[in-house]
């Protein structure tokens, strides 16, 4: 029941970042501020619900994004989202992250995510920009949007994911 609700809310986030955010971002900043709300939700899942769930959500929503916005290659978002979700969960799921900690983790994860995606495109010669330029052009400006979103959604997201874990705790093999 609760898992269904989480998936539904994340689908809504996915639609918002593709269809509504382009209108909210002021003209001229369209290619600089880029929303990654679904990814923020995956990191929340890793922090408050466990690494396996984060892996599953990351891979499936990453794949959805790859297929729906297919331009050059499929699989990059799925792999990176799943991987970052899993490792964040592995490092931090036992600790109860506070607001400051959660926000800083999300900030770091966003930089890591954008960097990894950038380098995948670099390896396959789809972009030829330098990393320093990409960092200043879109990675750092969009980081602020992600942080604002994480702050705004911290309380409901934490409640949602923690309720989910309490309802049916994952069976850990360790």
């Amino acid at each position: 029941m609760s898992m269904n609700r989480i998936i539904l809310l994340m689908l809504l986030l996915f639609i918002i970042e593709g269809a509504i955010m382009p209108w909210i971002i002021p003209a001229g900043f369209g290619s600089r501020i880029i929303p990654h709300f679904v990814f923020v939700a995956v990191v929340f899942a890793a922090l408050y619900s466990g690494r396996h769930r984060a892996l599953l959500l990351g891979v499936s929503f990453g794949m959805l994004q790859d297929v729906v916005y297919f331009g050059h290659l499929i699989g990059a978002h799925a792999f990176i989202m799943g991987l970052i979700g899993y490792f964040t969960g592995m490092l931090l799921e036992r600790r109860r992250a506070t607001l400051m900690m959660a926000v800083s983790i999300i900030g770091m994860a966003c930089i890591l995510y954008d960097t990894a995606i950038f380098f995948i495109y670099r390896v396959f010669r789809i972009t030829s920009e330098t990393y320093a330029w990409a960092l200043l052009e879109h990675i750092l400006p969009s980081l602020f949007l992600q942080l604002a979103f994480a702050l705004a959604c911290y309380v409901p997201a934490r409640r949602l994911f923690e309720a989910q874990t309490k309802a049916n705790p994952e069976t850990e093999e360790e």
């Binding site: 639609i15 970042e17 593709g18 269809a19 955010m21 382009p22 369209g30 290619s31 880029i34 929303p35 990654h36 994004q65 729906v68 916005y69 297919f70 331009g71 050059h72 978002h77 954008d114 995606i117 950038f118 495109y121 789809i126 972009t127 990409a134 052009e137 879109h138 990675i139 969009s142």
Partner: peptide, 14 residues
């Protein structure tokens, strides 16, 4: 236009 991709390196439109 229906949506815009949220990937800085692949700004495809639908």
């Amino acid at each position: 236009v229906v949506s815009v991709s949220n990937d800085a390196n692949n700004r495809s439109l639908t």
